[in-house]
Every structure is written in C-alpha cells, then in structure tokens.
C-alpha cells in the first residue's frame, strides 16, 4: 500500500507544485528570531526581482534554532539558501556534502551581510539591577536563553559569557568555565530556539533576564512596550556574524543557483541593509550603519578569532562531545 500511496502523494505533490514551477521559488531556511526581518525583506526582493528580470518569485521561509535547521536540511529539508547566525551550522552542511567548503569566499564580508551581539532584556525598572554578565551568575537571578545544543543564539551567549569570564580571570579557562556554569545553573528552561526563549520570558513571565541577540531585544522591547521591558547592553559582548550561503546541492537540483545567489547578494544592497537595520541588527554597509547609529548603543565587541582562536578551536575545546559545553550544560 505504501508504494501506491507514495506515488499518489507524489502525483498530488507534483500537481500542487506545478503552478510554482512556472515562476521562481526559493526556500530560505533561517534562524528562529529572523521571522520579522525576512517578512520585511522578502517582498522588497520580490519587487526587485520582478524589476530586474521580469519574473515573479515566491520565497518560502522556515524558522527554528539553526542547529535544528541544519539537521533538518541534512535529513532532506530542501533549502535553497540558509541564512544562519552561526558558521558552525553551515560547516555541518559542508561536512554533509551539501555545499563547498569555500562558501565564505562567495560573498563579501566573509558571507555575513549583518551582525549582532548577545545582549540582555530585563523586566520593567530592572528590579534585579542587572547590568553585566557577572550579574547573571548571582544566586538571586533567573536567566533565560535557549538550548545551546539546538540554537546558535545560545551558543553565542555561552561564548560571550565565557569571553567575559576569561577577561575577569586573567585568561584562566577553568575559572571562566566555572563562571559560565554558575550562569547556566540559573537557567530554569532551555527552549530549542531563540523565539521559544522569548516566549518563555515575555509571555510566560519566567526569569529576570533574557539573553538573546540585540536584534531580538530591540524588537521585543518594542513589541512588548506595555510590559516596559528594558534593553541592557553588557560592558563587553561577542561579535556575532550572521553567515548566509547557497545550499549548492539543493539549489542545483532545483535549478535555483542563480536566483539563490542573487537573493543573497541583494541582502548587501543599501535597500536591504536599511530594512535589516530597522530590525535592530548592525549592518555591514557603513552609510546605513551611520544612519541607525542612534538606536544601537556603543559596545566593546570581541571576536571569535581574538578570544577563542577561530571556530575550529571552539568546536574542539567547547562544543565537541565531552568538551567544556558538556561540563556546564550538565544533565541537560
């Protein structure tokens, strides 16, 4: 029965997809909190594509923690492009043979059209007086951020806290780990994606501070204006590049390589960068960045290369099985 059933559904699928092949279609698989930014970007690109090629294009979106998304793509989710918030999750796809190892060279800026940083969102009036990473380790503070095994967002939080711990302890890695563990012990729930964590904090009223990308703290503070949630920027944070790439294997199969490349290149145009900046991201384009400088506070940013010696070293020392993340994320 399965085979006839499969065939029937394959036929139905083909029928359902038939009108879509008459025009261009693209599946963008993205990180969890990117909902609003692509909701704003995609119609603009559609207009741009119509103007330059005379063709219509539909862009489908999927959102979730980026590691979860990478897994779904490995399991067969037919994503033409990925717009992630972490290089390691694209590297997972490289290992799976879905795109070439040279994806960083395909686009400017190491293939990252915008960036952000882990920042805080606190309750009205900041009752627990949370100002910096050290406050997150206090016994009386409940911290919310997503699951570092599924969410790139949470891994940046882990790394930023670790970087702060290193600075405070003269580079002593074990002391930094103990500091990060104290923060992790204050987390009651690890949602699988950044938006889940936001829901926990804003809707379910759990926790004193939400740690997530600055882009999300800005957007959520605006969306929950009644609740009086306040943004707090720590003294130091981690430069979080948001890499994008064409999933070559899928795009070649779908015949969408040119469209996918054009889409990602368009993300670097001032038009797109302005929309991105409106969503509280920090952008690569200097002119646009200057325009929106007011809404983004000054912050000292350290990079993955400076502090940790690059992603390969991070993978080995922190995220691999039995490495430091396992020590702090115990029993989770």
């Amino acid at each position: 029965m399965t085979f006839p059933a499969l065939r029937i559904s394959a036929v139905v699928l083909a029928l359902g997809a038939a009108p879509a092949t008459a025009q261009d279609a693209l599946l963008n698989t993205s990180y969890d909190i990117a909902r609003e930014v692509f909701e704003a970007l995609n119609p603009q690109f559609q207009a741009h594509w119509q103007e330059t090629t005379g063709r219509t294009v539909t862009i489908d979106q999927s959102h979730g923690g980026t590691s979860r998304q990478a897994r779904a793509i490995l399991e067969g989710l037919p994503a033409d492009v990925v717009t992630f918030n972490q290089e390691t999750d694209i590297e997972v796809l490289v290992e799976g043979g879905l795109l070439g190892a040279d994806w960083r060279d395909a686009l400017p800026n190491g293939a990252s059209p915008w960036y952000s940083l882990p920042a805080f969102l606190v309750r009205d009036g900041n009752p627990k007086n949370i100002q910096d990473w050290s406050d997150l380790a206090r016994d009386d503070v409940e911290v919310i951020f997503p699951n570092p095994r599924t969410s790139g967002n949470a891994r940046y939080t882990y790394l930023a806290a670790f970087a702060y711990g290193l600075e405070q302890n003269d580079g002593d890695e074990d002391a930094a780990e103990a500091f990060v563990k104290a923060i992790f012990d204050n987390v009651p729930v690890f949602d699988t994606g950044g938006r889940g964590a936001t829901q926990t904090f804003a809707e379910r009223n759990i926790g004193d501070v939400l740690v997530t990308f600055e882009a999300e703290t800005g957007g959520i503070a605006a969306a929950y204006a009644d609740a009086g949630l306040e943004r707090v920027t720590p003294s130091v944070s981690l430069f979080a590049a948001f890499p994008v790439a064409v999933v070559t294997e899928v795009a070649e199969r779908n015949g969408t390589v040119d469209l996918a490349t054009a889409y990602l290149e368009w993300l670097y145009t001032p038009e797109a960068q302005r929309i991105v900046a409106q969503n509280f991201y920090r952008v690569a384009n200097d002119d646009v960045a200057a325009e929106f400088a007011d809404q983004l506070p000054e912050v000292r940013l350290v990079t993955v290369d400076e502090v940790f010696g690059g992603w390969d070293a991070i993978q080995e020392n922190h995220f691999a099985e039995g490495a430091r993340l396992d020590n702090v994320f115990v029993n989770q």
């Binding site: 499969l6 559904s9 394959a10 139905v12 699928l13 359902g16 779904a72 399991e75 067969g76 989710l77 037919p78």
Partner: peptide, 8 residues
Amino acid sequence: IQVVFALP
C-alpha cells in the same frame, strides 16, 4: 524522492 519534510 523526498518523503520527510514534504507532503508524503
């Protein structure tokens, strides 16, 4: 043939 993450 695409089964999971699709209609089938």
